[in-house]
Computed example of a mutant assay.
Amino acid sequence: MIRWANSAEIPKILQITKACAHSMIERGILQWNESYPNQEQFAEDIRRNELYVYIYNEEVIGCIVITSLKDSEYEPIQWLTSELEHYYIHRLAVHPDHQGKGYARKLMDFAERKGREDGVASIRLDTFSKNPRNQHFYKQRGYLKVGHIFLPNQSEYPFYCFELPLINEPGKSSP
């Protein structure tokens, strides 16, 4: 089951993201660190009703942020769809003990379904350039790479931006 997160779940969500960071570091992927993601970000996500959790056997095993707020780092990107309303995905995580079982796919299915139901133009996100597994995951889902950004508080390496158009704009052909 996927539902909105609550404040009492932040410690569990932080355990999940720290376990994910540790797992990535073991594989040489220096994407998340001690400053990202953090408790303050998750508290703000909850305040804005943008943080969702995946519940399996009455336990939080994953999370995803679905927001309509565009981060300033995305300004230089030439997105596929014009500046209509979009959803941006952040902090997608599934505890390493539960990875490889389709839970990240279900979280993204949820986000894409929500986007279609809410009539947004596209789903936009970024993923670390040194994380080929994530890049493959999004490409398989039909996301198209549209550029890159730098997040210096996370890594010296770029993050690739991807977009999945959900509507056909007048005068544009669908990808």
Rank of each mutant, 00 (worst) to 15 (best):
Y52D: 00
E34R: 08
Q15I: 12
N57F: 10
K106T: 04
K70H: 09
P11V: 06
W4H: 15
F162S: 01
E156F: 14
L84S: 14
N57W: 14
Y36V: 02
I13S: 00
K18Y: 07
F150S: 13
L166M: 06
G142F: 08
E83K: 15
K106R: 12
D71I: 12
M108W: 01
Q39S: 12
V146Y: 03
Q15H: 11
L144M: 14
R116H: 08
V120K: 01
S23R: 06
L125F: 04
Y88C: 01
Q99C: 11
I77A: 03
N131H: 07
G100F: 07
E26N: 07
P175Q: 10
K18Q: 13
P96C: 07
G102F: 05
R47M: 11
T17Q: 04
V65R: 02
R47C: 13
E83N: 14
H95C: 03
C20A: 12
Y138R: 04
P158W: 05
I55Q: 02
L166K: 05
P175T: 12
L151G: 03
S23M: 09
P165G: 03
K145Y: 07
S122A: 10
R133K: 12
S82Q: 10
G119S: 12
Y52L: 06
H95R: 01
D118M: 06
Q140Y: 10
L80W: 06
P11M: 09
H90D: 05
F42L: 12
S35D: 13
Y74S: 01
G100H: 08
H22R: 13
G171K: 11
R27K: 15
S129H: 09
E73S: 13
P175M: 09
E112I: 04
S173W: 15
Y138N: 01
S82D: 12
F137P: 00
Q99V: 01
C63W: 05
K130I: 05
Q140A: 12
D109A: 05
G142T: 08
Y160C: 07
Y74N: 02
L151A: 07
I149C: 06
F42R: 00
R91E: 00
Y143F: 10
N38D: 13
P158N: 08
I2H: 03
R133V: 07
I64F: 07
Q99E: 05
L164K: 02
M24L: 15
R124V: 00
Y103D: 04
G171M: 12
S173T: 14
I89Q: 01
Q31C: 06
H136T: 10
V53E: 01
K130M: 08
E163M: 09
W79A: 08
N57T: 11
G100N: 02
P37M: 02
V53L: 02
A21Q: 10
I25W: 09
A19R: 05
A19C: 11
S173Q: 15
S155L: 06
L14C: 09
A93S: 10
Q31Y: 08
R113A: 11
R3N: 08
A5G: 04
Y88Q: 06
W4N: 15
V53W: 00
I55A: 05
N6A: 11
I13N: 00
E156D: 15
E73R: 09
